[in-house]
Amino acid sequence: MLRSKTTRQWLVAAGLLLLAAGPTVAYTPRVNYQLQCMGCHHGDGAGENGRVPDMRGTVVPFSALPEGRDYILRVPGVAQAPLSDGEVAVLLNWIARNLSTVPVPADFRDYTEGEVAAARHQPLTGVKQRRAELLSRISP
């Protein structure tokens, strides 16, 4: 009995060590937004008129289109952010649920690490043109 208890204590200690030795900095999506996006897009995602795109009215409608999801995952800010693919997925889902002015539909498809990994590593050229095409598709 004593021996197994000691073993269990060792296992717990080893687990704690593993947790501590994991990614040194792991922030909540809100803080990752502040650190990686907010400097230009502002705290509410409104951006700067004519300079930094407003994401509030587009993130949810774009996410409903395969081309829109591809666009979001390949824009410079997403493609180049010093975040892992998993962190990007969590961050995008947070943005959709916290900054969007368009309600998140019940069938909203969350971004996954795999989807982010498949698209994000081919950065987009012609960002402005692609955005304009998508905007014309989502406007009624």
Binding site: Q34, L35, G39, E48, V52
Partner: peptide
């Protein structure tokens, strides 16, 4: 400034 950089 309207845009900036952010750190910890």
């Amino acid at each position: 400034s309207a845009v900036t950089w952010i750190g910890t």
